[in-house]
Amino acid sequence: MPARDGDLADLQLLTEAAQAAGAIARRFFDGEAKVWDKGDGQGPVTEADLAVNEHLHGFLGQARPGYGWLSEESNPLGNLARLAHERCFVIDPIDGTRSFIDRQPGFAHALAVTDKGAPVAAVVHLPMLDLTYAAVRGGGATLNGKPIAATQPEGPLGATMLVARPALDPVHWPGGVPPVKREFRPSLAWRLALVGEGRFDSMLTIRDSWDWDIAGAALIATEAGARVTDRHGHPLRFNRAEARSPGVVAAGPALHAALMAGLTGDAA
């Protein structure tokens, strides 16, 4: 389906918002940000996360007051007013907070607009690396304004995969662990975008994945020609009450099929 004018306008809005978010994050990255632990195993949060979230909420909410709001740093599971909106912002102010705390540049701002649960506009911006991935439904995907495309390997032999080491434990692969070359990046959104860019052939996470980590980057990878599903092969849907999916698998269609055969034990 061709890109719609409303989706393109939302993409422009997200791009402006992401660039401003990057400027805020850089100030904290070059200085000193307070760090807290959220508790209940949720991990750390910093002043930068909260400052970026506040800016995005104000900027995007003013521009699109009729949209819902789902952000990691805005009580995402408690405030369900977003479910009443067909269109919703899905935001991770800083994806890769631990990397940010450690002064590693591989963190990202992940922004998306969803329509009835499907992403229609997306930006993943890595300010310290000067990388801006973007996509609009039906309009393809870009990196710094230039079109990108996922690789299309025929199978897993020799293919590269962005994946945490525990996810390749044979217990998860009744059909056999795929013979892939493993690498890793800290930001889940960046991992998906890198598949869209074609720098890596696939990515996989076994663990439940929050909407704000994956909604935008899933559109980027999909528009670049990858197939993106949950770990069971089902389509991803966003802005539901639980705001998470059972893992993510992204790769060109043939490799995706082979990976799903390994995960499920069914013949490809």
Rank of each mutant, 00 (worst) to 15 (best):
V52P: 02
N53E: 13
N53M: 02
N53S: 09
E54D: 15
H55I: 06
H55N: 04
L56P: 01
L56D: 01
L56M: 05
H57G: 14
H57K: 13
G58C: 02
G58D: 05
F59M: 12
F59D: 08
F59H: 14
F59V: 14
F59L: 11
G61F: 07
G61K: 07
Q62M: 09
Q62T: 12
Q62Y: 05
A63Q: 10
R64K: 11
R64G: 05
P65W: 03
G66M: 00
G66E: 02
G66Y: 04
G66L: 00
G66R: 02
Y67P: 04
Y67H: 10
G68Q: 11
G68R: 12
G68P: 08
W69K: 11
W69D: 10
W69E: 10
L70K: 03
E72C: 08
E73C: 01
E73N: 02
S74V: 03
P76A: 03
P76Y: 04
L77R: 13
L77V: 13
L77S: 11
G78F: 03
G78C: 08
N79A: 15
L80I: 15
L80M: 11
A81V: 09
A81K: 12
A81F: 00
A81M: 04
R82T: 11
R82F: 15
R82P: 06
A84W: 07
A84N: 08
H85L: 04
H85T: 01
H85C: 13
R87S: 09
R87G: 01
C88R: 14
C88G: 13
C88Q: 13
F89G: 07
F89A: 07
V90K: 05
V90F: 09
I91Y: 10
I91G: 12
I91L: 09
D92A: 03
P93M: 00
I94G: 00
I94Y: 00
D95G: 00
D95K: 01
D95C: 05
G96I: 01
G96N: 03
G96T: 01
G96Q: 01
G96V: 01
G96S: 02
T97V: 06
R98A: 12
R98T: 14
R98Y: 05
S99H: 01
S99V: 07
S99D: 12
S99W: 01
F100L: 00
I101E: 06
D102A: 14
D102C: 03
D102F: 02
R103N: 10
R103K: 14
Q104N: 11
Q104L: 15
P105V: 07
P105C: 12
G106A: 13
F107S: 02
F107V: 03
A108K: 09
A108H: 04
H109V: 06
A110Y: 03
A110C: 10
A110K: 05
L111F: 15
A112G: 08
V113T: 02
V113K: 03
V113P: 04
T114D: 15
D115M: 09
D115K: 08
K116V: 14
K116C: 09
K116D: 14
G117Q: 09
G117N: 15
P119S: 06
P119R: 13
V120R: 14
V120K: 08
V120H: 12
A121E: 13
A121M: 06
A121K: 07
A122I: 14
A122V: 12
A122T: 11
A122N: 10
A122H: 11
A122M: 12
